[in-house]
Design a protein around this nucleic acid. Structure first.
Length: 496
RNA sequence: GGCGGCAUGGCCAAGUGGUAAGGCAGGGGCCUGCAAAGCCCUGAUUCCCCAGUUCGAAUCUGGGUGCCGCCUCCA
């Protein structure tokens, strides 16, 4: 296996070779905790969760660090509005973030540093930047001198002189800056704002410096992977490279990975790719709201069926597609569990059917993931196997039935291994199916009890061979969105 | 204006030089009292357009069109 990852800095796929053999240090920019997270945030953390899981499966010891920005203008503003302490506000949204992540089966990371717990580290980094001649102090604030550092703009492919023309007509430039692109490392605090003592007076850290400090503290001067959304390439990550290089004399990360946005169409008929989901546009759906209507695994599958660097369109149709697929897979898994739980029958033969298919699936899956974590392709590679398992579960011939237990046991091993990477298809099937049904039940106007009553009435009619009445009930329920399925023993139902 | 990216069947989506994965939806069939589910079969002579390189291009080059993002807080 040879993993190749797309690196934003070099703009090409690179063979992945960690700094220290067998170990991977990974830093992903976390959220600013002043509000609930939306699906755009979900995408980042599901994507990098999957990346971390895959690296783990490859045998690497992964140290995944994901921070919380818990001091910032927006937090201060919101805290002021609500009349609460900003620390308290941050705590609340950190808890909310954890709830969202747990629901989406995003595994806990190794470290979750908070900015306010790293003020000393931040001050230390700023001091080193000043000492190395890349920072300057004005009125109790510290700025980074972008012109002092050769290579500024390398990540975002910008040149300083080209940037100024576009930026100056929209942003009022701080007169104290030597260059309009200089950015603040340490901000003097205004009365009433959270503040810390520093060599430059009371203040708080600028936005970009925190990541340089926390990544340095937890992963060292240089680590392997740095990730985040594409919108962080500039200025955040560009500035981080500048800061870390100035402070440590070496670039922070060996590979820069950036995920694409979740887009939202402006209208139903809209044929283009929609626009970026964002707080400022107000076109966002919070993770909590989405999970009310769609099962977490459907959301996760939806997010993983597009390669992480491509844009993805959030739409009910796409979520429903994903839901149907999740249902199909878990129905198959439920049937497999029935066989596995019963244990091998007396006539069972300990022989795995289609060993070639298992090998093909594993090979295809690994190949896809090795190619810059191509989850879309990896999921596609599972199709043949799942389809085969579903057929085997329903197979009537003796030869298949005798080998069913052994084959399903092997299938469980393979699926468990791959599902553990994707974070889907590894939950108890009945729970997932019930979870999907509970959500769909919210969409229909009649209760489950009423449906059961109608089914009982229909069964009476069917027993009397009064198919006209039976079909009328079927039609009536169908109009409500309830579909009946007459199986051998009982009539099951589902919501269309 | 600068920089980066995207455009593949009705929809979603892989595929970066060797003759178009997969999923959803649709159509036909099996099954069923009728259905549903499931299973089988079925769909792009073609990958936004034009030109070029090549034995060969969705894949490379040039031009064009449309869309998106970053340049300001943003995942």
């Amino acid at each position: 296996m040879a993993l190749r990852v797309y690196d934003t800095l070099s703009q090409r796929k690179q063979l992945f070779e960690p700094l220290v053999p067998g170990k991977v240090g990974m830093y992903v920019c976390g959220v600013t905790v002043y509000d609930r997270c939306h699906i755009g945030h979900a995408r980042v953390y599901v994507a990098f969760d999957t990346i971390a899981r895959y690296l783990g499966r490859m045998g690497y010891e992964v140290t995944y660090v994901r921070n919380f920005t818990d001091v910032d203008d927006k937090i201060i503003k919101r805290a002021l509005e609500e009349g609460v302490d900003s620390r308290e506000l941050a705590d609340r949204y950190i808890a909310s973030f954890h709830d969202d992540m747990a629901a989406l089966k995003v595994a806990p990371v190794q470290r979750e540093p908070r900015v306010t717990d790293h003020i000393d580290d931040i001050i230390g980094v700023i001091e080193r930047i000043i000492d190395s001649g890349h920072g300057y102090v004005v009125d109790g604030e510290v700025f980074f001198d972008v012109e002092s550092l050769e290579g500024y703009g390398q990540l975002s492919k910008r040149k300083l002189d080209e940037m100024q023309a576009g930026a100056s007509d929209r942003v009022s430039v701080d007169e104290r800056k030597r260059n309009p692109a200089d950015f603040v490392l340490w901000k003097a605090s205004k009365p009433g704002e959270p503040h810390w003592d520093s060599p430059w007076g009371q203040g708080r850290p600028g936005w970009h410096i925190e990541c340089s400090a926390m990544a340095g503290r937890h992963l060292g001067g240089t680590f392997d992977i740095h990730g985040g959304g594409k919108d962080l390439i500039f200025p955040h990550h560009e500035n981080e490279i500048a800061q870390s290089t100035a402070a440590h004399g070496q670039p922070p990360a060996r590979y820069w990975l950036h995920n694409g946005f979740v887009n939202v169409k402006k209208s139903e008929e809209d044929s283009d790719q929609g626009e970026k989901m964002s707080k400022s546009l107000g076109n966002f759906f919070t993770i909590g709201d989405v999970l009310e209507h769609y099962h977490p695994e459907a959301v996760r599958l939806f997010l993983l069926t597009t390669h992480y660097r491509s844009p993805i369109v959030y739409s009910t149709e796409n979520l429903e597609d994903a839901t149907r697929r999740v249902e199909y897979v878990y129905e198959t898994l439920a049937k497999m569990d029935l066989v596995l739980d019963a244990g091998p029958s007396q006539a069972a033969i300990d022989e795995v059917l289609r060993p070639d298919l298992f090998e093909e699936t594993l090979r295809g899956f690994n190949e896809a993931m090795d190619d810059d974590f191509n989850t879309a392709r990896a999921i596609g590679e599972l199709s043949d196997l799942i389809s085969f398992l579903n057929q085997l579960a329903d197979a009537k011939d003796k030869a298949s039935k005798k080998r069913r237990h052994a084959t399903f046991a092997r299938a469980r091993e393979v699926l468990d291994e791959l599902a553990a990477v994707l974070g889907i298809f590894d939950s108890p099937p009945r729970e997932v199916l019930q979870g999907i049904r509970a959500r769909k039940l919210k969409k229909i106007s009649i209760s489950a009890e009423e449906v059961e009553r109608q089914i009982a009435a229909r069964d009476e009619a069917r027993k009397a061979r009064d198919f006209a009445t039976a079909d009328a009930i079927r039609a009536k329920l169908a109009a409500e969105g309830v579909v009946l399925m007459d199986s051998a023993g009982e009539t099951l139902w589902k919501i269309a």
